[in-house]
Every structure is written in C-alpha cells, then in structure tokens.
Amino acid sequence: MADKVSHDIIEKWLKAWSLSREISPPERYQSGFKVNVGEENQKVRYVFPELNDDYIELSKLIDESWIYLKVCASPDSVKNVVPQRWEIQPAGYMMSCFGPMNSLDNYYLPEGYQLEYEKYNSTSVVKIMTDKSEQASIGRVVIVDDLAVYDRIITEANHRRKGLAAFLMKELEKIALSNTISNNFLVATEQGKMLYESMGWELYSPYTSIVIPPNTIV
C-alpha cells in the first residue's frame, strides 16, 4: 500500500471515472475534487485523497441526501469524525498494478462465449457475450495520460466462477499495453478485491464513501 496517496493519481482516476460515464470532468474543490454526477441517487460526489479538515468541515455543512463524500481512508477513521447523519457505505479498495498483470496461462474463454468491442471518447469497452447474444461480462478501460483506469467490471451472476472476469481483465490490459501504458488502477469491492489480488494487483488505499440517506432527521 502506498505510504501517501498521490493527488495526481486520484485526479487521473476521477477524470477516467467521469469519462467512462460521459459526465462533466472533476473540478478542484479545496484539497479534493467535486464531480457533478447528476443522477437521482447520486447528485454530486466529493473525493479527497486524505482525511483532513476540508473533508470534515464539508461533512458538517452538507445536510442534503444523495451527495457522496469519498476519501482515501478507512471506514473506522471516517466514522469517528463525521456527524451521525452520514451513513457509511460498503468498503471500497483503491488498487494498483504498476506493471503487467499475472500471466494469461490460466485464463481462457470458455466454449460458448465470444468477445465484442466498443469505444467512445477515450473509453474502450470489452464485452463477453454468449452464443445467444446474452451479455455475460463487461468492463471498461480509460486511458488518462500515463494511467489505465479499469471501470465497471461486471459479470452477471449466472456466468460467474467460469474465469470470465479474469479473462476480461486481460483483454482490457491488452488495450492499455497497445497504448504503451502499464500503470493500472481501479476501485474494487470486497468481492472484486480477491480477484484482482490473484492477478497481481495490490491495495493502494482503503476508500470510504458516506452519504445521508433520504428522510434522515438532521
């Protein structure tokens, strides 16, 4: 895990996150960033590379639902410094792989599946489809400067435990390598973290999100 989270890497990751979703790029906000997401259940997100006074003061000012505060810190450290109206979300993990992922030797595309590719702005999409045109797995890689950001890696429940996600990641990596990029970054869930670790990824930083649920008494 990095001794100190790089402000530059977080900014590149957040730019990629925004490009992947085709929304406005992040804006600087004090020592962090602000993204106007514009979704019903996520109006705005603020992201801070560290737990500091800017983050804590903002948590005291906001009393509106569906505005997310995100920070590179553990859930316990966040819980102790923000007002009780905030709800801690499931743990996230910023992960990096600054170099090639583990070998493809054990990864293969099972019979009955095929690959499809799409691209928009600087986002490349890889899909694994069944021979009945059903989407089994999908993921994106976005190139921002010298960083390849992997985003929205999803395998449908009835297609899991077949190695599809690992194969998908290696296909996405090929796109990054074709752009001479070998610095890889993503945010994982608890479930995804195990897969990425098996492929040579390492924990970069814990990543905690909080939000005020609707109808919360302030």
Rank of each mutant, 00 (worst) to 15 (best):
M1N: 07
M1P: 12
A2K: 05
A2T: 10
V5L: 01
V5W: 01
D8A: 08
I10L: 11
I10C: 10
E11R: 12
L14S: 14
A16T: 13
S18T: 15
S20K: 13
I23G: 07
P26T: 02
E27A: 02
Q30A: 03
Q30S: 02
G32F: 01
F33V: 00
F33Q: 04
N36C: 00
E39F: 04
E39C: 00
E40S: 01
N41D: 05
V44S: 07
R45D: 12
Y46R: 14
V47P: 13
F48Y: 15
F48G: 07
D53K: 14
L61Y: 12
L61Q: 15
D63S: 11
D63M: 04
D63H: 11
D63R: 08
E64L: 00
W66S: 06
L69I: 10
V71M: 09
S74G: 07
P75S: 01
D76V: 00
D76S: 04
S77W: 00
V78E: 00
V81Y: 05
V81H: 04
P83Q: 11
Q84A: 09
Q84D: 13
R85Q: 14
R85L: 08
W86R: 11
E87A: 13
E87R: 13
E87P: 02
A91R: 07
A91Q: 08
A91K: 08
Y93T: 04
Y93V: 03
S96A: 14
C97F: 12
F98M: 10
P100F: 05
P100E: 10
N102K: 15
D105I: 10
D105T: 11
N106E: 15
Y108I: 09
Y108V: 08
G112Y: 04
Y113D: 06
Y113W: 01
Y113R: 03
E116S: 13
E116W: 05
E118W: 08
N121T: 09
S122Y: 02
S124W: 04
V125I: 10
V126Y: 06
I128E: 05
M129T: 04
T130K: 04
K132R: 07
S133D: 14
E134M: 02
E134S: 03
E134T: 09
S137F: 03
I138V: 12
V141K: 14
V144D: 13
D146C: 03
D146P: 03
V149S: 15
D151A: 03
R152D: 13
I154H: 06
E156Q: 11
A157V: 12
H159V: 07
R160M: 07
R161C: 12
K162F: 03
K162C: 04
G163T: 13
L164V: 10
F167G: 03
M169E: 08
M169I: 05
K170T: 06
L172N: 13
E173V: 13
E173S: 14
K174Y: 12
K174V: 09
I175P: 09
A176N: 06
T180L: 12
T180S: 15
I181T: 12
N183V: 01
N183P: 00
F185T: 05
V187G: 02
V187Q: 10
A188G: 09
Q191N: 06
G192H: 06
K193M: 07
M194V: 09
Y196V: 02
S198G: 01
M199W: 00
L203R: 08
Y204G: 09
Y207K: 10
Y207H: 15
S209T: 12
S209A: 12
I212A: 02
N215I: 00
T216G: 01
I217G: 01
V218E: 07
